[in-house]
Simulated assay, not measured.
Amino acid sequence: MANGAVESFVRAAAVEIAPRRVNAVSPTVFTESLADYGDFFPGMPPVDLAVVARSYVRSVEGAQTGQIFIP
């Protein structure tokens, strides 16, 4: 529910605070921490930290707003 709330907030806030931008990045478990946390993410594919970092860069430096980036 928390993730859904954040995603809804981002989409609604993007309209309200324009021209400022707001985005969110929503990764699953990191490949680098799969051994420690993989059991908490059953059925979810792990994602490399480098891919997540590129999503954050795109979120901050890109022109889009109100987007949920899922690496």
Rank of each mutant, 00 (worst) to 15 (best):
M1C: 15
M1I: 14
A2L: 15
A2Q: 12
A2M: 05
N3V: 06
N3W: 06
N3I: 12
N3Q: 15
G4Y: 03
G4F: 00
A5I: 13
V6D: 14
V6I: 15
E7P: 05
E7G: 15
S8N: 04
S8E: 06
S8C: 11
F9K: 03
F9L: 07
F9R: 07
F9Q: 07
F9W: 06
V10Q: 13
V10K: 04
R11H: 13
R11M: 04
R11L: 01
A12Y: 13
A12C: 02
A12R: 12
A13P: 07
A13Q: 14
A13S: 06
A14V: 04
A14I: 07
A14T: 05
E16S: 12
E16G: 05
E16M: 06
I17T: 04
A18C: 02
P19D: 08
P19W: 03
P19C: 05
R20P: 05
R20T: 05
R21V: 01
R21K: 14
V22P: 01
V22I: 10
V22K: 00
V22A: 03
N23V: 03
N23A: 13
N23Q: 01
S26A: 10
P27H: 00
P27V: 00
T28W: 09
T28I: 09
V29K: 02
V29W: 03
V29E: 10
F30K: 00
F30Q: 02
E32F: 04
E32D: 09
E32P: 04
L34M: 07
L34S: 01
L34C: 04
A35M: 06
A35L: 14
D36H: 15
Y37T: 10
Y37P: 13
G38M: 08
D39E: 06
F40P: 05
F40G: 07
F41G: 08
F41K: 10
F41C: 09
F41V: 03
F41M: 15
P42E: 02
G43L: 03
G43Y: 14
M44F: 06
M44I: 13
P45Q: 08
P45G: 10
P46L: 00
P46Y: 00
D48R: 09
D48K: 15
D48Y: 07
A50G: 11
A50W: 10
V52M: 02
A53E: 11
A53W: 14
A53V: 12
A53I: 13
R54V: 09
R54M: 03
R54A: 11
R54E: 09
S55R: 10
S55Q: 11
S55W: 07
Y56C: 13
Y56D: 03
Y56I: 04
Y56N: 11
Y56S: 15
Y56W: 14
V57N: 03
V57F: 13
V57G: 00
S59D: 14
S59V: 07
S59L: 10
V60E: 01
V60H: 01
G62L: 05
G62Y: 00
A63Y: 07
Q64P: 02
T65L: 11
T65D: 09
T65Y: 05
G66T: 01
Q67K: 06
I68R: 07
F69Q: 10
F69L: 11
I70F: 15
P71L: 02
